[in-house]
């Protein structure tokens, strides 16, 4: 990958890639692997970008698609397909944001199903229901309902933690 491409086309969007990768990983090592893989796949897929959508939307799509189908490392070095309908593993101590509330929120997000995780991440990034539906290939009318349900679930998880 040319460093120019990374600097001009990926780095300005690294924030969303980081946010997404963090939601699908539990350790710093996994996070770095996911981040690198997303960058690699964006670079490899760049020829397919036809400017029908914005570059940022394209980056969202690839990041999300990569996160949904990546093989997560297990502690014992074997690998398995990400199964996040299971309760999230505890996050490592060195793998945390400096804001404690944000850490709690991320821990709660990691407890959601993979699709719900994607929806809430896009919602929190202030994407409209239509944009979320476009990125995920769903019906925009259902997104609003699902977002409300996810927020209630997150609130329950967070309340449980805080209390």
């Amino acid at each position: 990958m040319s460093s120019d491409f990374y600097k001009t086309s990926i780095l300005p969007f690294s924030g969303i890639i980081i946010k997404l990768c963090r939601a699908y990983t539990n350790s710093q090592e996994d996070f770095e692997d996911y981040y690198q893989e997303v960058c690699l796949q964006i670079w490899r897929s760049k020829e397919n970008f036809r400017e029908e959508s914005q570059w940022s939307t394209w980056v969202y799509r690839i990041s999300l698609n990569v996160c949904l189908t990546l093989l997560k490392k297990k502690k014992n070095n074997s690998q398995h397909f990400v199964s996040d309908s299971l309760p999230a593993q505890e996050t490592e101590d060195n793998y945390a944001f400096s804001d404690e509330s944000l850490n709690l929120l991320y821990d709660a997000i990691r407890k959601l199903s993979e699709i719900d995780r994607a929806i809430i991440m896009l919602y929190l990034e202030e994407k409209s229901n239509q944009e979320i539906a476009d990125i995920m290939g769903t019906n925009p009318n259902n997104i609003g309902v699902r977002v409300r349900r996810i927020k209630m679930r997150l609130k329950k998880i967070l309340d449980g933690k805080i209390n």
């Binding site: 780095l11 924030g15 980081i18 981040y35 929120l105 997150l154």
Partner: peptide, 18 residues
């Protein structure tokens, strides 16, 4: 959660790319 998200990412440098 919207505020936690916004404020959490505003006041730190956690979004530095690895």
């Amino acid at each position: 959660i919207e505020n936690i998200w916004k404020e959490g990412f505003q006041k730190n440098d956690d979004l530095t790319a690895p």
